[in-house]
Amino acid sequence: MRVEVLSVERLVFDDGTPVRAASALVEHDGGWLVAQDDATHGALVRDGEVRPVRLLPPVEGHDRFSEAEGTKHLKPDLEAACRTAAGALLLGSGSTPARTRAVLVEPAGAVHVADLAPVHAAVRAELGLAPGELNLEGACVVDGRLRWFQRGLPAAGVPAAWVDLDLDALVAAVLGGGAVPVGLLGTGVLDLGADLAVTDAVVLPDGGVLVSAATEDSADTYADGPVGSAALAVLDGTDVRALAPLPPVEGAVVKVEGVALESWASSGAGGRLVATVDADDADVPSLLLRLEVSGVPPQRA
């Protein structure tokens, strides 16, 4: 498998402010809805424009959050997104009690918010994680189930993993404003090698799952750190079908945190992706990449 960077775009809102901490993206309303993990607004990238979309109400009066301002502990940390029949679903990482919300944006624009704290707690218990180790950073829909990816910290002995949930029950509860049922349907543990941890996921037409991954020198799931390497992998369940390094972008290794399918060849051997890069710096615009993937081997018989 090979990966090529076709284009690089700096994401800036129409008023000139940067799109910060682009942590997930999903197709929405004829464009791409990008989550900012340290803000209550997302960004809709469409037809050459980038406009804000409110996803959550202010948190204790704040719409943006940072360590420098002493508000990082309040940030919603929407780290995963996927498209459902009801609209765009965005999910908090669960790495702190403030990061356990789900947001569903309907095609017409209505926004629904739900608390997922009991679901996050059940996922942590199912994966056998200690307090502070949960960090769910990617999601996609596989066979009608929500497949939610635990990033992990392989260098510290916390592997990447996934858990399947009842997507229909979750979406119905978010739309209905009720408690979200846990609905655990299965788990899997991943080993991508080289201490790579999963940062996002998208399902391919043949049922495989393409994940973005990176190594980051951080002590825990809360702190950011320098990125050492980055890659894309294609998974069949917990098996790694293919793995390829992500080329440097403008001479630097970058952490892709959001990935979505733009097109894919009928042969299944490759296609084009849209991806977002979080610079971990509120003053630096996030990047929108277009990637060409080729040479993907077929599923094993």
Rank of each mutant, 00 (worst) to 15 (best):
L44S: 02
D191W: 08
R46I: 08
T96N: 00
L288N: 06
A21P: 04
G61Q: 05
E262R: 11
G183I: 15
V171G: 02
A160L: 07
A160S: 15
L243I: 12
N135A: 09
L165S: 03
E250S: 06
V274K: 02
V103K: 06
A269T: 14
A139T: 02
V202N: 00
G183C: 15
V119W: 08
G94L: 07
R99W: 00
G177P: 03
V254L: 10
V111W: 10
R241I: 11
D14H: 12
D77I: 14
P205I: 06
A265V: 04
G188K: 01
L261M: 05
A88V: 14
A156I: 11
A81W: 07
G109D: 14
D164A: 05
P57Q: 05
L165D: 05
R10K: 14
D143F: 03
V119R: 00
T40F: 04
E126I: 07
E27F: 13
V3I: 15
G295V: 12
S294R: 14
R64N: 13
A269N: 03
H28D: 10
D47E: 09
L25Y: 11
V59Q: 08
D29I: 08
L261G: 05
C140V: 09
G178S: 12
D280E: 15
S267W: 01
L287F: 14
G61A: 11
D37H: 04
R83Y: 12
V53E: 05
D217S: 07
A114M: 12
P107G: 10
G70T: 04
S95P: 00
G144R: 00
T96F: 03
M1N: 05
V111C: 05
N135R: 01
P285H: 08
A269R: 01
A244Q: 01
G208A: 14
A88E: 00
D15P: 11
L146V: 10
F13M: 06
L11V: 12
Q36K: 03
K75C: 04
E27R: 15
A230D: 01
L235I: 09
E216H: 04
L261V: 06
D281Y: 12
K75Y: 03
P52W: 01
L56K: 11
A43S: 04
P248Q: 09
G87N: 08
F13Y: 15
L74R: 04
A282Y: 15
L289I: 09
L184G: 07
A161K: 00
G152D: 08
A219Y: 09
M1L: 13
G258W: 01
E67I: 05
S286K: 01
V50G: 02
V12F: 06
L74Y: 02
V50P: 00
H28T: 07
S212D: 01
T238A: 15
V142F: 13
C140M: 09
E106M: 13
A98Y: 03
R124L: 13
P131K: 06
A98E: 13
V277E: 04
A230K: 08
Q299G: 13
V8K: 14
L185H: 09
R46G: 07
H73P: 00
L44Y: 12
P131N: 09
A108C: 11
H120M: 14
F65T: 03
R272C: 07
G176M: 08
D224I: 10
P97L: 11
A242P: 12
G87F: 12
R241A: 15
H62W: 05
E216A: 03
D47F: 01
L44A: 05
S286P: 05
A139Q: 00
A35Y: 04
S93V: 12
G188D: 02
A230Q: 03
A242T: 11
